[in-house]
Design a binder for these strands. Structure first.
Length: 958
RNA sequence: GGGCGCGUAGUUCAGUUGGCUAGAACGCGGCUGUCACAUAGCCGAGGUCACAGGUUCGAGUCCUGUCGCGCCCACCA
């Protein structure tokens, strides 16, 4: 667009500037044309003006480095590569009323601001634009129509230089789909750039989660320099806290600066960076619902000497200002705050003659912010009860029509839910007890929306009163401080992953790919759901969850047929067949959400679930069955047991002296599998405790799963079957093991464990808890009782000697032998019920004899025979020795055996090569830790022995 | 535009200061109606840890780059 010059050019050429724009219609509100000071044309245009066509407004040419230089004038690569440079003319039309960048540029050059638009988005001369000139033809048009007409008019006047295609992003309202037009309006803001807000929030982070920051680019840097004494290097942590002044006693405790931690760590950065770049927070929202902003306003006229023309209104405002006993600085009892324009600073309204800010026309807008509108709060003011709002309305005060941003109210949550600011009988003491709370668990996007605001507000409002005299204190008059003090709202913030659908798409209503927990509980149970979710709760950002359907006809869960919809999303086809009966149909949530189909009696809606939760369901089922089995064993022996027949294991007394010697002595010769189980429980408890402490929920769940299913069910319960009926000590270990497992599982599976516990606690074995073996956590608040719930029971505590590397190693040998035998049996198709014979060499006779019962039970051996009946049965390698399984019933399948051994030899050769290669590396022995080198040598030796045995067996097969 | 995350078995994912002969679940193949559990048990197959460099005695793990996928915030990082 061409703008003709308004003044004569010095060289007698008409001034003429060409601006490039994507929004020509906004020229009606232009108040300047800008040029880059480095533009060579700038000098000759300095001080000149141009005249807007039709409007006739004369506007200045200003210089501002914001203006992009045209490609031809670019001074460096960066400027040249600016995509705008290609289109730039070097002149920028400046429309402060309808563009954010132009607004800021306008502020720099003190340009007037014109609003040419009505709130409904049409060109208007009724909302601040008055110098319409000959531009009437645009008034009333929509912005889009005005755009076309402006271009047409410029063209007809010969002012249109050219039209070029240009690609840019444009914002649209999500709800109305209308294009968003920048528009000036009055809004309320919270000055979160105050160091007591944003900087204080960052100071709340624990020291190791604060990043190194250069003070020059920090918002609160001025305060750091002004308010805080420089700190020594040794005291670097104090420095990182943002220079808190020593007077802030309230923040000196453990819940002030440096006491809030994010999990995982990386989210501290999100939190911190957001505050580093925060801007004042607009809290006005144009919605019909919500907390209405409690500010009333009225334009009042003042006469000479500050005398107010409207006595009633001024009197009211004055009365509120003067609140009883001049409570202006008493934040506790203050009922209202009164202030007036200009609101560049929050200030009390000045009434007295000589008012400094008296505007020329004598008109002030007076604002009254009610800190409470409860009539009973106004008792000692002007009668009781007194509805101040009525009085305000009568005196032409109008309440702001906007409501508070919901996050404003939410930010007060840790305070307001605990009775703040005025505790009632019911809420008394809550704030002290639960602020800070321990852990906030939330999603990523909430870090900025909610976590940040809670932290800022909580710290601000809990700061000592000397620091913040009132919620409306003017920061400019407050003592400088870096942190602002106050306590954090919570000590830990756990940011969990977000569940996406099976295609990696976000779950949403419109895609119908969300899964309702209630539906999962219906298909899988709540314990199963909770456990599975816990397993998925890793420290990654997102997790995929396969979304399946529940057939409304049969209740089956199945994977739906997927299609790609018109927007490119993978969605379930809107109509699905019942998996077993194709004649029965159903509609999907996506089908309904997209409006393509409707549910009916013939085609009901298939609800979503996920087969992912099968894992939790199976696990719960496993725990249930194992418990039933254990309980039945204990019940049987309980019936036969009298209190003093608990032979061999002295009962634990609750004496302070700890376990008696007899008990400890009898513990020493407990069977390998019992000792192993205790050790495994102790190890698992340690791992799980640590995992929970570190918010590693997935690790916790996985360890629980393994110790219950793999160790307890697969090995322990199988191993004790033949002996438990006659071994009272084993039953005690079993009872303790069950109790420990239930306590470990309770947080994720509260219902099933509670039910099992109810029966288990009735079966308390004579010896009860065995604290001296490491399973001694209080079964119920210090001692086992028949009363009480598992949820009251103590968390298992592990004594250091509960873990036995010897027992774990010993049982690992048993497991290795059993597995080797099982492998031979499977390979030879030996019937599971059939008992076979194990032939072993003399060198491991002691080991075999000691564990004969265990191995016999777990591997199906009935005869143990020393020696090697050559050519019979099948040979296999164990610890480098050759053992043999015989009495396999059928003829040995030599082919299967050869295949097995060949594979084994290949695997062992591969391992051997790895270790040999490592040891052959000259640097390895020199530089790796000696223990590491020795370990590799041992591993190689073992592999070589096994390899020898396997080769020998293979050779014998021929 | 900025920030962050992820690419490891057919699939979904673990793998915490580098020590791994890379694990689990589901799925797959074989055997089993067995007395806690078939929502189960036993056995097995299946992986150049996205790609390319680098550091190191040693890299799934640390660094740099490339290529994919995704999330969050957006005139400001």
């Amino acid at each position: 667009l061409g703008y003709p010059g308004a003044d004569q050019h010095p060289a007698d050429e008409p001034a003429w500037v060409t601006v490039a724009t994507t929004r020509p219609e906004t020229y009606l509100a232009d108040t300047a044309v800008a040029i880059n000071p480095h533009d060579p044309r700038a000098i000759s245009l300095r001080g000149l003006s141009v005249k807007l066509p039709l409007v006739g407004r004369v506007i200045p040419i200003v210089e501002d480095s914001y203006v992009v230089l045209p490609e031809a004038m670019a001074r460096n690569e960066e400027e040249k590569n600016d995509p705008k440079a290609k289109f730039a003319t070097g002149f920028l039309k400046v429309t402060p009323g309808h563009d954010k960048n132009d607004w800021e540029l306008g502020q720099r050059h003190k340009l007037p601001v014109i609003n040419m638009m009505s709130p409904d988005g049409n060109v208007s001369d009724k909302h601040g634009w008055t110098d319409v000139g000959s531009a009437h033809l645009f008034v009333g048009l929509s912005m889009m129509d005005a755009r076309k007409k402006v271009v047409a008019e410029f063209k007809s006047h010969g002012l249109l230089e050219s039209v070029k295609p240009y690609r840019q992003s444009v914002t649209y309202s999500d709800r109305s789909k209308a294009q968003v037009e920048p528009y000036l309006s009055d809004q309320w803001y919270v000055r979160v750039t105050d160091p007591r807000m944003a900087a204080s929030a960052n100071a709340a982070l624990v020291a190791d989660q604060r990043t190194d920051q250069s003070p020059t680019r920090k918002q609160g840097s001025a305060h750091v320099e002004a308010g805080a004494p420089s700190t020594s290097e040794a005291n670097g942590e104090e420095d990182a806290k943002g220079g808190r002044t020593p007077s802030l006693a309230s923040a000196s405790g453990s819940d002030g600066d440096g006491s809030m931690r994010f999990h995982p760590d990386r989210y501290a950065k999100t939190f911190e960076q957001w505050h580093d770049n925060i801007r004042d927070w607009c809290i006005s929202r144009q919605l019909w619902w919500g907390h209405r902003i409690p500010v009333w306003s009225c334009e009042l006229e003042f006469e000479e000497g500050g005398y107010c023309a409207d006595e009633h209104a001024c009197g009211l405002a004055s009365a509120l200002t003067r609140a009883p006993n001049d409570r202006l600085n008493d934040s506790v009892n203050k009922l209202a705050c009164v202030f007036s324009t200009p609101i560049d600073r929050w200030q009390p309204l000045l009434w007295s003659p000589g008012m400094e800010t008296m505007p020329e026309d004598g008109k002030h807008i007076v604002y009254i912010c009610l800190l409470t509108d409860d009539p009973s709060d106004w008792c000692d003011e002007i009668g009781c009860p007194y509805d101040v709002r009525e009085d305000l309305a009568k005196n032409n005060f109008v309440q702001d029509p906007d409501v508070l941003d919901t996050w404003f109210s939410s930010a007060l949550w840790p305070l307001s839910t605990m009775g703040w600011p005025a505790p009632t009988e019911e809420t008394k003491g809550l704030l002290e007890a639960f602020n800070p709370s321990s852990t906030l668990c939330t999603a990523r996007e909430i870090i900025t929306l909610w976590v940040s605001r809670m932290t800022m507000f909580n710290r601000y409002f809990t700061a000592s009163s000397g620091d913040t005299p009132s919620g409306l204190a003017d920061s400019a008059t407050s003592p400088a401080c870096g942190g602002g003090g106050g306590v954090v709202p919570f000590r830990d913030v756990f940011i969990h992953a977000v569940i996406q659908d099976g295609e990696g798409q976000k779950m949403s209503k419109s895609l119908g790919n969300g899964v309702d927990p209630i539906d999962i509980i219906q298909t899988h149970g709540s314990d199963a759901m909770r456990f599975t979710l816990c397993t998925m709760s890793t420290h990654t950002q997102d997790v995929k969850l396969q979304v399946d359907l529940i057939c409304p006809h049969t209740g089956e869960v199945f994977a739906p047929k997927m299609v790609t919809n018109k927007d490119g999303y993978r969605v379930p086809a809107v109509i699905q067949d019942s998996p077993k009966d194709k004649s029965k149909k159903m509609v999907t949530a996506y089908g309904v959400a997209s409006g393509e189909v409707k549910a009916s009696a013939e085609m009901p809606l298939a609800r979503n679930t996920s087969s992912k939760f099968d894992m939790g369901r199976n696990f719960a089922n496993k725990l249930w069955n194992a418990s039933r089995f254990a309980v039945s064993i204990l019940e049987k022996s309980k019936q036969a047991e009298t209190p003093d027949t608990h032979a061999g294991w002295a009962a634990h007394t609750d004496s302070e002296d700890g376990p008696d010697e007899a008990a400890q002595a009898s513990w020493k010769d407990v069977s390998v599998v019992d000792r192993w189980m205790v050790s495994r429980l102790a190890t698992a408890t340690k791992e799980m405790t640590r995992a929970l402490d570190e918010f590693q929920f997935s690790a916790y769940a996985q360890t629980l799963y393994d110790v219950i299913w793999r160790d307890f069910c697969d090995w322990y319960l199988e191993a004790i079957k033949p002996t438990v009926a006659s071994d009272a000590r084993q039953r005690t270990v079993l009872w303790n093991a069950m109790g420990t497992l239930l306590r470990l599982a309770h947080p994720v599976m509260p219902f099933i464990t509670e039910v099992i516990y109810e029966r288990l606690k009735e079966l308390r074995m004579g010896a009860g808890e065995l604290p001296w073996i490491g399973l001694g956590a209080p079964m119920h608040q210090g001692k086992a009782t028949k009363e009480g719930l598992l949820c009251h029971a103590g968390w298992p505590q592990v004594s250091s000697d509960a873990v036995s590397p010897e027992a774990e190693a010993a049982f690992a040998r048993v497991q290795a032998l059993v597995t080797a035998i099982r492998e031979v049996r499977a390979q030879q198709n030996v019937q599971p019920k059939r008992k076979v014979t194990l032939n072993f060499p003399a060198s491991i006779a002691a080991f075999v004899t000691l564990n004969q019962t265990l191995v016999g039970t777990l591997a199906g051996i009935d005869v143990f025979s020393q020696g090697d009946p050559k050519d019979e049965g099948v040979a296999f390698a164990f610890e480098g020795l050759q053992l043999r399984v015989t009495n396999l019933a059928d003829a040995v399948d030599a082919g299967a055996e050869r295949a097995r051994l060949t594979k084994q030899v290949a695997d062992l050769e591969k391992s051997a090569a790895t270790f040999e290669g490592r040891l052959a590396n000259p640097g390895y022995a020199d530089r790796a830790p000696p223990a590491m080198v020795q370990q590799t040598r041992d591993q190689l030796a073992k592999v070589m022995k096994d390899l020898g045995a396997a080769r020998e067996a293979l050779a014998k097969l021929g």
